[in-house]
Design a protein around this nucleic acid. Structure first.
Length: 438
DNA sequence: GATCCACAGGAAATTAAGGGTC
DNA sequence: GACCCTTAATTTCCTGTGGATC
């Protein structure tokens, strides 16, 4: 107990040291990705375009629907929120009815039903709709009634952010069609849609009727380059920190890293914020390139660990199957059939989980691909081997091992040798055939 | 050039769960 | 309590495909 006491962390001393360390922040929120600053560097053109389209609101006109494209972290949402704030202020200033802004993030609200229900709830928060159960046509009728209850000549802007995340093509087309035509049922109020998409060719997938109505005006947000990101970070640094404690070299490095990864300003801000936290926790007085590198590595590592630990049991089984094939085939790639076979073996050894079909496993492997844990590509082996997906492990073996070894269900199988590797005399391509042999 | 393998992947159907209405 | 609604996950059915082999 004595030794434990001697080596234990003294929280009082830590707090005392923390208080003695220099104060870094004036406004910590300025480094938050959700923070909308007063000035948005290098987005004048886009601000101007949206302002020109929405300005007719000031003369009680109904603007055209707008569709905005651009990769992640190119300032789409920030620009729309900025314009909405300024337009509302101007309406107040000249004494006309202020527009209603409803912001819906389709990454979180993914179905047509929920988009309509959230829209209704935003307009009538007193009588919220249930999360499921109400027929869509009833919601629509009630929504139109509520919109008509707004003040005369009202404009209701509906911002559908990350609109490409809406699931199910049919439901997506339905809700977008209904919203794009809702003005036909409105007398006093008008609805304007602002769709924001991270995918440039999202439009190609839409019903042509929806497309022509939703995309009346189109605006493209290009990715930021390193110089532009440097300007963005500089303005945030000026707002966030108490004095000039950030090295210019650190900012240039942070900008260069983010520019290389799709020109994503969010990524640049996240790294900078993490680096600032490291400086603060260690009681240092300057933020240098070293903290930027550490912050980037920490962020990448934390992201993967958290992701693996939070995977559902079935996804863990698939990842483990890829890992075991990779481990015992000494780094060689595996086919869908082999991974599926190993997966079936593992599922037979545990209770409480049903074996999913190969069709479903194909989709789940693609999901692991998307987050960078595995890497796969299609390859054909001709008449003998057919066409299959070749899957390899992209994450490090040690990372998988570290994050799965404590798993109550799969932790004991990290050294399990799959059947087709034990029986190297059998050359099996087909997952279905392999499943029947095990 | 035709054949055939082992899937890939789209679309519709099914199932289970959660909820509302009458 | 019967019936209707939704979502999400999964299955089923189906057609398509690259390329080695015949």
């Amino acid at each position: 107990l004595k030794s434990i006491g001697n080596s234990s962390f003294n929280i009082d001393n830590y707090f005392d040291d923390y208080l003695k360390s220099p104060k870094l922040f004036v406004n910590r929120n300025a480094l938050d990705i959700a923070y909308v600053p007063d000035e948005l560097p290098h987005r004048d053109l886009q601000i101007k375009e949206i302002a020109e389209i929405t300005a007719c609101t000031l003369k009680n006109g109904a603007p055209s629907n707008i569709f905005i494209y651009g990769k992640c972290g190119t300032g789409k949402t920030a620009v729309v929120k900025h314009v909405s704030k300024k337009l509302t202020e101007k309406c107040r200033q000249i004494g006309i009815v202020t527009p209603k802004w409803v912001y819906i993030n389709c990454k979180r609200i993914k179905t047509g039903y929920r988009v309509l229900a959230n829209l209704y709830n935003a307009i009538d928060p007193e009588n919220p709709l249930p999360p499921t159960g109400t027929p869509v046509d009833i919601i629509l009728t009630r929504l139109v009634e509520k919109l008509e209850d707004l003040a005369a000549n009202s404009i209701c802007f509906i911002i559908l952010d990350e609109i490409d995340s809406l699931k199910d093509k049919k439901s997506k087309d339905n809700v977008l069609y209904v919203l794009s035509r809702i003005n036909e049922n409105l007398q006093k109020c008008k609805v304007n849609l602002i769709g924001i998409s991270n995918i440039l060719n999202f439009k190609d997938d839409l019903d042509p009727r929806v497309c022509s109505s939703l995309c009346e005006e189109e605006i493209v947000f290009p990715a930021y380059n390193a110089v532009q990101l440097f300007d963005i970070l500089s303005s945030r640094v000026a707002e966030a920190f108490i004095e000039d404690i950030v090295d210019e070299g650190a900012l240039r490095l942070c900008s260069a890293i983010a520019a290389k990864e799709n020109g994503d300003a969010r990524r640049a801000l996240t790294i900078l914020r993490k680096a600032a936290e490291i400086v603060e926790r260690k009681g240092m007085s300057r933020l240098t390139e070293e903290q930027i590198y550490i912050a980037r590595d920490n962020l990448d590592r934390d992201k993967i660990s958290l992701f693996i630990r939070d995977l559902p049991a079935q996804q863990k089984a698939i990842l483990l199957s890829v890992y075991l094939n990779h481990k015992y085939k000494k780094g060689e790639v595996s086919s869908t059939g082999e991974v599926y076979g190993t997966y079936c073996e593992l599922l037979k050894k545990v209770y409480g989980l049903n074996t999913l079909t190969q069709r479903r496993i194909t989709d789940l492997v693609k999901e692991l691909d998307l987050v960078g844990l595995t890497s796969s590509r299609l390859k054909s082996f001709g008449k003998k081997g057919g066409r299959t997906r070749i899957i390899s492990l992209k994450a490090q073996e040690s990372q998988i091992k570290k994050n799965l070894q404590d798993d109550s269900r799969w932790g004991d199988f990290l050294d399990y040798k799959p059947f087709h590797i034990r029986r190297s005399d059998i050359n099996i391509y087909s997952g279905q055939r392999y499943k029947s042999l095990v």
